[in-house]
Structure formats: C-alpha cells, structure tokens
Amino acid sequence: MISIRNVSKSYGSFRVLADCSTEVARSEVVVVCGPSGSGKSTLIKCVNGLEPFQRGEIVVNGISVGDPKTDLPGLRSHVGMVFQNFELFPHMTITENLTIAQVEVLGRSREEATERGMGLLDRVGLKAHAGKHPGQLSGGQQQRVAIARALAMDPICMLFDEPTSALDPEMINEVLDVMVELAQEGMTMMVVTHEMGFARKVAHRVIFMDHGRIVEDAKKEDFFGTPRSERAQQFLSKILHH
C-alpha cells in the first residue's frame, strides 16, 4: 500500500531524512517512534506530499508521490491524516468541518456528506456536539472529530502524526480507543507516536528512527523483545521508566 524507497531530505546542509526505506502492507498497522528531532514527523508528511523530499521514491497505492505529474490533491483526498494539534477549522461548526471536503473535493451532495459525517461523529461518540465550534470542545473531543473528518473521505489508509502528544493525560485514552478500533477493523495505518501500549496492542511492526535514519524496522514482538540497536534499547527504557 505504502512503499518508501531510499528517501532522503535535507534543509541546506542539515540532513532530516537519510536513505529511509520501508513498506506498509494493506491492513497493516505500523508504529513509528524515536526521539524528538529524529525525522519521524517529516517522514510521515512525505507520504502524502506535505513535505517535499529530494531523493528516493514514495509510492502510495501505485501512485508516485514525488512525481511532479502526480495529482497530489487527488491522492491526498483518499489518504487520511490526523495532526498533533488537531487542526480542525476553528471558524466552522463540527458539521461543516466534517462535510466541507466531502462536498468540495469529492463532489458529494450536501445531504450525502452530512449523513456520512453524522454517522462517523456518532461513532466517535460526539453526535451531540454537531452544531458547536471546535474551540468549544476539549482536546480529546477535537482529536476524535479530526479522526472522523479524515474517515469521512473514505481513505484507503490513515496517517497519524503524534495524535496524542498535545493532549492532557486524561484525554489520551479516548483517542487511542478510537484508533484501536480502527486498527482492528483492518484499516491500513502509519502512526507516529510514543504510546507503546497502543503499539503493543495493535501494531504489526514498529519502526525506530534516530537522526533521520530508520535504525530499526521490526515485527512488534521482536522490537519489544530484543531491540537490536542500543539507541532503541535506551529509548524504550526511558519511555518505560517515565
């Protein structure tokens, strides 16, 4: 579904990504972790072309992201993305947030879009808030709306960029629960996160990044059992003893 081949990116002389390669198969859940500044957020933003990269190739569902001829909006319209700071549109109601892209990008009728949006809002348990603005919801609620907004586009895969790191601790689980459910339904997911509990529960593979490199790319069991690199060991023990 997603294949990343030898991708490199630098800002001037600073290397952000160095020769990164990995694959995400259909219905696979891959967790990307690593210390801050390791390039994990940059890598996931390269997948839907929000960050350009200089070398290598990323192919999503058979379409090359880096190819200048690629219709990026078309590709992005069925690759869902969830951001660290939710990024709901503050001037629109929750309903408008859920329907605007369905109507403007996918060309759905307003009724159809509203029906789809309301169904998903119900699924994340927020139907009662349809008429509110994002600023009137808690962080956890906003992030659940953001997930519903991405799902409303009927994505073929979902990208999560640190979806819980801007949340107060007591709100993290309500968001993770939605994500776990999604994983169990067979959604293809690439998730940048430090939530190792989530990784243990639903991930198939874990990727560990450091200094722009993919240091470790292993099955979940292997990663948590015997991480090969010292950096990954250190990282895990730091997170566990936190």
């Binding site: 839907n48 909006p73 078309g74 709901l88 549109f89 990008v105 996918l106 991405a150």
Partner: peptide
C-alpha cells in the same frame, strides 16, 4: 498555525 494549511491540503484541497 501552519498546521491549518497542511490540514486543508491533507484533505485533498
């Protein structure tokens, strides 16, 4: 916030 532009683009706008 710069994320707003990314969020719009990520939805396929």
């Amino acid at each position: 916030p710069p994320g707003q532009k990314n969020a719009g683009l990520a939805l396929g706008f």
